[in-house]
């Protein structure tokens, strides 16, 4: 379910890849990534799947309900720095599109600042495709290469079928110029990283967003630790070379 959240006072400035701690009194708190383009301040969007105590309660909220928000927290996709002036490759798996959408919208709003822009999106089935209006808009642009695939086709799907790595050879990517932003399940990372490595993309050019049980969001409660790193402080977006040799990271 997509939520539009408007601060009652002040504004909430954030960058793509960051998350907020959303809370409902009496229910609890959970980290949710922001999926809208930054820079609006007066409101933001988040896509919430019903998976736990808080998200179930969020789904039951009426329009106009109040909720508590702390944040934004965490690191960002490098849309404002490393990626600028380079080719941008976005690799999204399933609900991983949510945080990446923020980065994609940011880049497309400043299209001239980037080289080639490529978006790869994979879902399990056509029914699970998210932000379908955005997908259509990206597909229609001639300054963006947009490719998508599903693991299992169902009518009336006529597009690509197969895992997301099948799209990588078709992406027009210059390994020397590209900066990759990826978000998806760990299994996706495993295979995508192998494919990117085969293309000759350096680890320092790849940014991945990892999910962990972030609880406090400020590096105190300990739940999201990945060895010495905190997913909430040092992540959720990591440059791949910083975690490549780390156990349990991916």
């Amino acid at each position: 379910m997509l939520f539009e959240v408007r601060p009652e006072v002040g504004r909430l400035d954030y960058m793509p890849g960051q998350f907020v701690e959303v809370s409902l009194p009496g229910v609890g708190e959970a980290p949710i990534s922001i999926c809208s383009a930054p820079g609006r301040g007066e409101s933001f969007q988040m896509l919430v799947r019903k998976t736990g105590r808080l998200t179930a309660a969020l789904h039951a909220l009426p329009e106009g309900a109040r909720l508590g928000v702390r944040g934004p927290y965490g690191t960002r996709f490098p849309v404002g720095d490393d990626m600028k002036g380079r080719d941008a490759l976005f690799v999204a798996g399933g609900i991983g599109l949510a945080p990446l959408r923020s980065a994609i919208l940011y880049v497309l709003e400043r299209r001239a600042d980037y080289g080639r822009v490529t978006i790869l999106y994979g879902t399990k089935s056509p029914a699970e495709r998210l932000f379908t209006r955005d997908l259509a808009a990206w597909a229609a642009r001639n300054d963006v290469q947009f490719l998508e695939t599903v693991d299992r086709a169902e009518p009336p799907w006529t597009g690509n079928v197969g895992v997301i790595t099948t799209l990588i050879p078709r992406a027009r990517v210059d390994p020397a110029r590209v900066v990759v932003a990826a978000c998806g399940p760990p299994i996706m990372y495993k295979f995508v990283l192998v494919s990117l490595h085969a293309l000759g993309v350096a680890h320092t050019q790849i940014f991945v967003s990892l999910e962990r049980r972030m609880k406090c969001g400020v590096g105190k409660c300990g739940h999201c630790q990945i060895n010495g790193l905190y997913a909430c402080l040092d992540g959720p977006v990591f440059r791949y070379d910083r975690i490549a040799d780390m156990q349990e990271a991916i």
């Binding site: 009496g26 229910v27 105590r53 179930a56 309660a57 039951a60």
Partner: peptide
């Protein structure tokens, strides 16, 4: 109370 709020009890 959790069930009345529609959330999973802990």
């Amino acid at each position: 109370r959790s069930l009345a709020m529609g959330v999973e009890p802990v």
